[in-house]
Amino acid sequence: MSEQNNISRKAFLGKISMLGLAGAGGGVFLKGCGNGNGEEVADDPCADLSGLSESDIELRETLEYVAETPNPDERCDNCEYWVDDQHGPECGGCTLFAGPVHPGGWCNSWVPMS
Rank of each mutant, 00 (worst) to 15 (best):
E3R: 11
E40R: 12
G25I: 14
L96A: 00
P112N: 00
E58P: 03
D77S: 11
W110I: 02
V66C: 10
A22Q: 10
S8M: 14
E58Y: 10
V101W: 04
S55G: 13
L52D: 04
S53A: 05
A24F: 13
R9W: 14
N37R: 08
P103V: 06
T69P: 05
Q4H: 11
A11G: 11
E80T: 06
A24S: 12
G14Q: 05
P70I: 05
I7C: 09
C46T: 09
G25V: 14
E39L: 08
E74Q: 14
V41C: 06
G25N: 13
N37E: 10
S114F: 13
M18D: 12
M1Y: 07
E80H: 13
G105R: 01
G26A: 04
P72E: 13
C79G: 03
R60V: 00
A67T: 02
E54H: 12
L63D: 02
N108W: 09
G99T: 00
S109H: 14
A98I: 05
D44K: 01
N35D: 15
R75T: 02
W110M: 03
G27I: 07
G92T: 07
F12M: 11
E54S: 10
G105T: 05
C91L: 02
V111S: 11
I16V: 14
Q86K: 07
S50Y: 06
M18K: 15
G51W: 03
C91G: 02
N71S: 06
I7D: 13
N5R: 15
V28D: 14
E3I: 12
P89C: 05
G14K: 13
G88K: 04
E58Q: 12
N78C: 07
D43R: 09
V28Q: 15
Q86V: 00
G104N: 11
G99L: 00
I7G: 06
C91R: 02
G38A: 01
N35S: 13
S50F: 07
G26I: 02
G104A: 07
T95F: 06
S53W: 03
K10A: 13
D77F: 07
K15L: 12
L59E: 03
N71T: 03
E61I: 06
C91P: 01
A11N: 15
G104T: 06
G34P: 01
I16D: 04
R9A: 12
C76R: 03
L96D: 00
T62S: 03
I7W: 07
L30I: 07
S114N: 14
D84P: 01
W110F: 07
C79T: 05
F29N: 12
V111F: 11
N35V: 08
L49R: 06
P70R: 08
E39T: 06
N108P: 08
P100I: 04
A42H: 09
H87F: 14
G25D: 10
G26K: 05
C76D: 08
P45E: 00
E64Y: 09
P45S: 03
E80S: 11
E39Q: 09
C107D: 12
G92K: 10
E58D: 14
F29Q: 15
S2K: 09
G51A: 11
Y65V: 02
S53T: 11
G99F: 00
D84A: 02
N71V: 06
T62N: 05
